[in-house]
Amino acid sequence: MTTALITGAGRGIGKAIARRLAEDGHDIAINDIAANSDMLEQTAEELRATGRKVSTALADVSKPDEVTEMVRKVVADQGALNIMVANAGIARVTSLLEMEADEWDQVMAVNMRGVFLCYREAAKQMIAQGGGGKIIGAASIVAYRPFALLSHYSASKLGVRGLTQGAAMEWAKHGITVNAYCPGIVGTDMWDLIDEKLAREEGLQRGEALKKYSESIALGRVSVPEDVAKLVSYLASPDSDYMTGQSIMIDGGIQFS
């Protein structure tokens, strides 16, 4: 039996990924920060209805000791760690001229440092276990096409793309594949916040910024979290065993590279 750990899984894309991987037959460990503990427990109860073994681990992914303890707890609860989905992330909408260094650092701490720490600790555990593993990270369309007012977010996700390539090179000898998924515009709380702030910056009504950016989607609709979860399902499965170091867009046809 395989165990998958998904960070930032209390809601949104992380929750959809956890649900899909449970449906695929994996046992599940889900993580979020302490402030979201009630939400995380509710998600865990929903996942247990699938019949899979489900455990939870509270941790701030930007803190090394907490990530180490999170992986330790998952292995103690589940017996092993076979799939790591470093999904946790935050977004801020600020112009570069108005951005404070603290805001830059906060976005980098979660989106870049947090993915690095999750990748590293998962790899250590997988190497100790033997038998390889799957490490999967949250990048974004902005890893290929940055958005104005999201420069720090864009930089962090471009960093995840580079980290994913480097990790794939280093850990291939251990049978570990490392890939990332790059969502476009997804109907989540994060994009509601982005829409609100972009609309304010661009002098639009709430909802108009999301509509403006969505007009470039070739498939004609905003993504839902389940769209992303389907790609992660593939990356977590044996079907992707010959793929590593890739950051794959799942954006409905916005960016063509």
Results as ranks from 00 to 15, higher is better:
residue 2 T to E: 15
residue 3 T to H: 04
residue 3 T to K: 05
residue 6 I to Q: 07
residue 7 T to G: 05
residue 8 G to W: 02
residue 10 G to E: 07
residue 10 G to V: 06
residue 12 G to A: 06
residue 12 G to Y: 06
residue 13 I to F: 00
residue 16 A to I: 06
residue 25 G to K: 06
residue 26 H to S: 07
residue 28 I to Y: 06
residue 32 D to G: 09
residue 32 D to R: 11
residue 33 I to L: 11
residue 33 I to H: 05
residue 37 S to T: 14
residue 42 Q to P: 02
residue 43 T to K: 02
residue 43 T to R: 02
residue 44 A to S: 12
residue 46 E to G: 11
residue 47 L to D: 02
residue 48 R to A: 09
residue 49 A to H: 09
residue 52 R to V: 10
residue 56 T to W: 07
residue 60 D to I: 06
residue 60 D to T: 04
residue 61 V to M: 04
residue 62 S to K: 03
residue 63 K to G: 07
residue 65 D to I: 07
residue 66 E to A: 03
residue 69 E to S: 15
residue 69 E to A: 15
residue 74 V to L: 06
residue 76 A to W: 08
residue 76 A to V: 11
residue 77 D to Q: 13
residue 78 Q to H: 13
residue 80 A to N: 14
residue 80 A to M: 11
residue 81 L to S: 01
residue 82 N to M: 03
residue 82 N to L: 01
residue 83 I to R: 00
residue 85 V to K: 01
residue 87 N to A: 08
residue 87 N to R: 02
residue 88 A to M: 09
residue 92 R to I: 11
residue 94 T to P: 02
residue 97 L to N: 10
residue 97 L to I: 15
residue 97 L to R: 13
residue 98 E to A: 14
residue 99 M to E: 15
residue 100 E to P: 05
residue 105 D to W: 00
residue 107 V to C: 03
residue 111 N to Y: 07
residue 111 N to D: 12
residue 112 M to T: 13
residue 113 R to L: 02
residue 115 V to H: 04
residue 118 C to H: 03
residue 120 R to K: 14
residue 122 A to K: 00
residue 124 K to H: 12
residue 129 Q to W: 01
residue 134 K to M: 02
residue 136 I to Y: 10
residue 136 I to P: 07
residue 141 I to C: 00
residue 143 A to G: 04
residue 144 Y to H: 10
residue 144 Y to D: 10
residue 148 A to V: 15
residue 151 S to G: 13
residue 152 H to N: 13
residue 153 Y to R: 05
residue 157 K to A: 01
residue 159 G to P: 07
residue 159 G to H: 07
residue 160 V to I: 12
residue 164 T to V: 12
residue 165 Q to C: 07
residue 165 Q to K: 15
residue 174 H to C: 08
residue 175 G to I: 07
residue 178 V to P: 03
residue 179 N to K: 04
residue 180 A to N: 03
residue 180 A to H: 01
residue 184 G to Y: 12
residue 184 G to D: 06
residue 185 I to Y: 13
residue 186 V to I: 14
residue 189 D to Q: 14
residue 190 M to R: 04
residue 191 W to M: 15
residue 193 L to N: 13
residue 193 L to A: 15
residue 194 I to G: 02
residue 197 K to C: 00
residue 197 K to I: 00
residue 198 L to D: 10
residue 202 E to W: 13
residue 205 Q to K: 15
residue 206 R to F: 09
residue 212 K to N: 07
residue 215 E to W: 03
residue 219 L to M: 13
residue 222 V to G: 05
residue 223 S to F: 02
residue 224 V to G: 10
residue 225 P to S: 00
residue 228 V to E: 02
residue 228 V to D: 01
residue 230 K to T: 12
residue 231 L to E: 10
residue 231 L to F: 09
residue 236 A to F: 09
residue 237 S to R: 00
residue 237 S to V: 09
residue 238 P to G: 00
residue 239 D to Q: 14
residue 248 I to W: 08
residue 249 M to E: 11
residue 249 M to S: 12
residue 249 M to Q: 13
residue 251 D to R: 00
residue 251 D to L: 02
residue 252 G to Y: 08
residue 252 G to M: 05
residue 255 Q to S: 12
residue 255 Q to I: 13
residue 256 F to W: 14
